[in-house]
Amino acid sequence: MSETDWKVLLALLGALVGWVLAQGAAAGKFWWRRRWLRKHLLLELEDLKEDLGQTLIHYEGLIKVAAIGGILPEGRVPLEAPIYSEFFTEAYAGLNRAQRRSYKMTHAQIHAVNAGIDHVRNMLLELDPRGITKEELKKRGIDWMEMVKGQYLNVARAYTHIQFHLMNIDNPDLGGPYGDVAQWFGRHDHKAADKVVEFVEFAQGKTIAELKIHMADRKV
């Protein structure tokens, strides 16, 4: 082999080695990016779980005060999930089917919670007692009670979805509508409904001021 041939061969080998290294670097960067996205999607779920816990306490207070005929004019700020909103499409391919389905279901629940928060705010604006009859005000009070009860149950379901996902990070398989997981969710739904009854019973005979003091020390 001539000197020229050796130079050509070395040049080709150099180009090949460079291409292989570039591909390895790209693959490594791609792998790290997927890992970063999976990690931060989970961290965001943990943050959302804490936010939902505080929202549960908020609705608990509204239910207890409503149970004695009062209305707390207090709202909540909608929950945010910037990692899911901005990067879920990118992370999609790096997740298995159970993870994708669980994330989508969980964030559908978060969307419902935020819609409920908006509904509470709008209903508070409509509860101005000026210019309406006592009968109408009483009816609005009943509607308010039913609404905050329903919102508590919505938040509890979202909280349960996140709890399930964090308990089964690698395979949060929701299964079918009549499977073991569905029954597990059903039991948690029943527990949340039982708590609503307990809140109403607890409030009886208490004043709004007493309930506020009690709620100030509440934790999930």
Results as ranks from 00 to 15, higher is better:
residue 100 R to I: 02
residue 100 R to K: 12
residue 100 R to G: 04
residue 101 R to G: 07
residue 101 R to L: 06
residue 102 S to T: 01
residue 103 Y to T: 05
residue 103 Y to K: 02
residue 106 T to E: 10
residue 107 H to P: 12
residue 107 H to E: 13
residue 107 H to F: 13
residue 107 H to Y: 15
residue 108 A to S: 09
residue 108 A to T: 09
residue 110 I to A: 05
residue 111 H to A: 12
residue 111 H to F: 14
residue 111 H to S: 14
residue 112 A to R: 10
residue 113 V to E: 02
residue 113 V to F: 04
residue 114 N to E: 11
residue 115 A to V: 02
residue 116 G to D: 12
residue 116 G to F: 10
residue 116 G to Y: 04
residue 118 D to S: 13
residue 118 D to F: 09
residue 118 D to Q: 13
residue 119 H to F: 15
residue 119 H to R: 12
residue 121 R to Y: 03
residue 121 R to C: 01
residue 121 R to A: 14
residue 122 N to P: 00
residue 123 M to G: 13
residue 123 M to W: 07
residue 123 M to C: 02
residue 124 L to T: 08
residue 125 L to D: 05
residue 125 L to Y: 10
residue 126 E to A: 14
residue 127 L to V: 12
residue 128 D to W: 11
residue 129 P to T: 13
residue 130 R to M: 10
residue 131 G to E: 07
residue 131 G to I: 07
residue 132 I to M: 10
residue 133 T to S: 14
residue 133 T to G: 08
residue 134 K to W: 08
residue 134 K to S: 15
residue 135 E to Q: 07
residue 136 E to Q: 03
residue 136 E to C: 03
residue 136 E to S: 05
residue 137 L to V: 05
residue 137 L to N: 05
residue 138 K to V: 11
residue 138 K to T: 08
residue 138 K to P: 02
residue 139 K to M: 09
residue 139 K to H: 14
residue 139 K to D: 09
residue 140 R to M: 07
residue 141 G to H: 04
residue 142 I to W: 05
residue 144 W to Q: 00
residue 147 M to A: 09
residue 148 V to P: 13
residue 149 K to S: 00
residue 149 K to V: 03
residue 151 Q to P: 06
residue 152 Y to T: 14
residue 152 Y to W: 01
residue 152 Y to C: 14
residue 153 L to M: 05
residue 153 L to D: 12
residue 154 N to T: 15
residue 154 N to D: 08
residue 154 N to K: 10
residue 156 A to H: 02
residue 156 A to Y: 06
residue 157 R to W: 09
residue 160 T to R: 01
residue 160 T to M: 04
residue 161 H to C: 10
residue 162 I to D: 06
residue 162 I to R: 04
residue 162 I to M: 04
residue 163 Q to M: 09
residue 163 Q to F: 13
residue 165 H to Y: 14
residue 166 L to A: 07
residue 167 M to F: 03
residue 169 I to Y: 06
residue 169 I to K: 15
residue 169 I to V: 14
residue 170 D to N: 14
residue 170 D to L: 06
residue 171 N to V: 03
residue 173 D to N: 03
residue 173 D to A: 03
residue 175 G to V: 09
residue 175 G to Y: 02
residue 175 G to I: 00
residue 175 G to N: 00
residue 177 P to H: 02
residue 177 P to C: 09
residue 177 P to W: 00
residue 178 Y to S: 08
residue 178 Y to W: 15
residue 179 G to V: 05
residue 179 G to Y: 01
residue 179 G to F: 01
residue 179 G to R: 00
residue 180 D to K: 07
residue 181 V to Q: 00
residue 181 V to I: 15
residue 182 A to P: 11
residue 184 W to M: 05
residue 186 G to D: 07
residue 186 G to S: 05
residue 187 R to H: 13
residue 188 H to Q: 03
residue 189 D to V: 11
residue 189 D to L: 11
residue 189 D to P: 03
residue 189 D to C: 10
residue 190 H to W: 14
residue 191 K to Q: 14
residue 191 K to E: 15
residue 191 K to D: 15
residue 191 K to L: 15
residue 192 A to M: 11
residue 192 A to D: 05
residue 193 A to H: 01
residue 194 D to M: 05
residue 195 K to I: 04
residue 197 V to K: 13
residue 198 E to P: 01
residue 199 F to M: 13
residue 200 V to K: 08
residue 200 V to G: 14
residue 200 V to H: 04
residue 200 V to Q: 13
